[in-house]
Every structure is written in C-alpha cells, then in structure tokens.
Amino acid sequence: MSEGLHTQEVSRDTRLLPKCAAIVVRDLQLLVRRPGQMLQILGFFVVVTVLFPLGYSPELGKLRLIAPGVLWVGALLASLLALEGLFRDDAEDGTLEQWLLCGQPLAALLLAKTAVHWLLTGLPLTVLAPLLAVTLGVSIEAAPGILLALGLGTLALSLIGSIAAGLTLGLRRGGVLLSLLSLPLAVPVLIFGARATELVIQGDSPTAALYLLASLVVLAITLAPLAAAAAVRIGLE
C-alpha cells in the first residue's frame, strides 16, 4: 500500500489551537469515563465546610462571620487535592512525553490542560460555594459575588498549582510537597478572595478586591504556564 511521502512533503497542520482543542476534548472524554475524581473533590469541599458548624457553632450569626474564611480554605484545600493528579496520570502512562515531542510550545498546551482542569474542578467548586454559603448563614443574594470571587480565585490557584504539580511529578509523597510548595504562593489569592467574599456577604462593593484578584489571574496566565512547562520538562527527566 502507498504510505504517503516523507516529512518534507507531508501536509502537517502546524496551528496551535487545534492541538489545544484536542487536549480539551480528550480530557472531557476522560472525565465522562471516570467522573469519580471530580465528585470526590466536590465531596471533600462539602465535608470540610460542614465540619465548621459541627466543630464551632451551629449559630448562623456566628457562622456568617467566618463564612468567607471557611469557603476559601475549603476551596483552597480542595483545589490542591485536585492538582495532585493534574499531570500525574499523563506522566505515568507516557502520554505527557508525547506532548513535549509534538513540536508545539509546551507552555500553551499546559495552559489548555490547566484551563480544562479548572473547568472540571475549579468551576464546580465555585458553583457549589454559594449553596454551601447558605448553610453558613449567608443570604443567597450574595451568590453572584461569591461566584465571581471564587471563579477567579480557583483559576489563579489552578495556574499557580500547575507549577508545583510539575515540580513534584514522580516524587514520593508528592502530594504533601505539592501543598507545601503551593500554599505560600497562594497567600495573595486567599487574602484578596476572602476579602472580596467578606465584602459581598456584608453587602458592600467588592470591586477593589476583585480587581486585585483579576490582576493576579492575568499575571498567573502570563507567567505560570512558562514556569509549569519548565517544571514539567524537569519532572519528566
């Protein structure tokens, strides 16, 4: 049979976007086959939040005061839990190696991968947050603000965490290390995010805090994929 011609004459689609789209499609397929991980992370978020009324006080008035902190710490821990698997599975079965060899900028591919990861973990966490906030005595009117703050915040966390996920690839106790590396870097996200949420819950305008959060996201989108690409290259050695 005729096998076609060689590289010089082969028609090769060198555009970047179709590759990113392929990554998104594949990760969605994987989620459909195996939705367990996503559900576990949402479950974790719920359990952490529910622990506070049990461990602190069932009084909604008291809970409302600590609601921003509870939501953010819960979302932060749940995101970190999810990040452990960000590159691990692909590194273990050898598919991530092929990403490095496909002749496309790795940083862009990892950005696509991280974006879809956020879509499958950060976004569901965000959607869940206003509902959990209600159990902490927060009015449902605060939902849009909470959605916006957590949406931006979890996106920034996914991007920052992608660096740590790359650096800890293939290490024993990588999960613990991942948290140790990510948490200090996540401090600004936590501060701005929790403040925005607090203002929303109090019924004040969270604009300033949201702007700061948004600028962190912009910075993270610009720099984190480059660092993550360097980290993944090192992690796969």
Binding site: R12, D13, T14, R15, P18, K19, A22, I23, V25, R26, Q29, L30, R33, R34, D89, D90, D93, G94, T95, E97, Q98, W99, L101, C102, G103, Q104
Partner: peptide, 26 residues
C-alpha cells in the same frame, strides 16, 4: 519516539488515543 511503554490512556479506546496523539502532531 516510541518508548517501551505504549503512550496510551487506559480509559480511552485505541481509536480515541490515536486520534488525540495524531491531532497533537497535526
């Protein structure tokens, strides 16, 4: 490059795997 482990996702079919790997290379 073909390493001694075939670079395939266990949860996808062979066809889906090839589609992804080859799309990645265009």
């Amino acid at each position: 490059y073909l390493s001694h482990a075939a670079p395939l996702k266990a949860d996808l079919t062979g066809w889906e795997n090839l589609r992804f790997l080859l799309s990645l290379r265009g």
